[in-house]
Design a protein around this nucleic acid. Sequence first.
DNA 1: AAAATTTACTTCATCTGTCGTAGTAATTCA
DNA 2: TGAATTACTACGACAGATGAAGTAAATTTT
Lengths: 112, 112
Amino acid sequence: MISSDVIRGYNDTIILYLLLEKASYGYEISKRIKELSDGKYVIKETTLYSAFNRLLKKGYIESFHKEQTFGKKRTYYNITETGLLYYQEKCREWELTKEVINQFIYHSAERQ
Amino acid sequence: MISSDVIRGYNDTIILYLLLEKASYGYEISKRIKELSDGKYVIKETTLYSAFNRLLKKGYIESFHKEQTFGKKRTYYNITETGLLYYQEKCREWELTKEVINQFIYHSAERQ
DNA sequence: AAAATTTACTTCATCTGTCGTAGTAATTCA
DNA sequence: TGAATTACTACGACAGATGAAGTAAATTTT
């Protein structure tokens, strides 16, 4: 299982990525993360919802409510323009981070 | 610059990697990190020394003093057997983590 | 020779993101 | 009808990173 210290700081990015696909809500996002990571990463509920609050405060996402006659009332989230910019910046940062950490990792065979 | 949240939890691994090369001490390790990362990552002093303490407590490194007639007295560190095992585990974890995060990153061109 | 810089740390307090525990409440499934 | 799933919220604790500040010896610059 993946250590939360590594993912830390990338949960926001992961969430923004999923909101780029489409507006969504907590439960759906958590399912999607598990799905896309092949079950290798399961985000904790509290981590997810505290990430939403952080992202809202920073203005990277917006919340709204859909009219719905079925199911429990959900809070949906949308990514904003600044949220997109932040996401893109994080993607560049990730490439850099990968390079740096790779430098200190023993790679079992030939690959970098 | 690299966000500390990502490196967080990999500082220990980075330090262990450098101690695998040879026994070393704080200042030298910090220089080496900067050097090997091409100046892309500079570890903070307090981060480094608190990492040493953590690693000592876990038994992943050992400290000793070299006899020296020159320079200020240094505390040298060695990696232990369990330290090596931990390092190897972290390397495997890193490969997994890369895969997972990559899944949520927009890659500008074709590469994975 | 004095002053500034570099080397080599230590202590302490604060911040942030993660996560455990717990609770609420509606809806769907058996 | 009871259990499980969906969809959250509140709160407190913890760990790692970091800023600020200080110490002190050694080296380099002026």
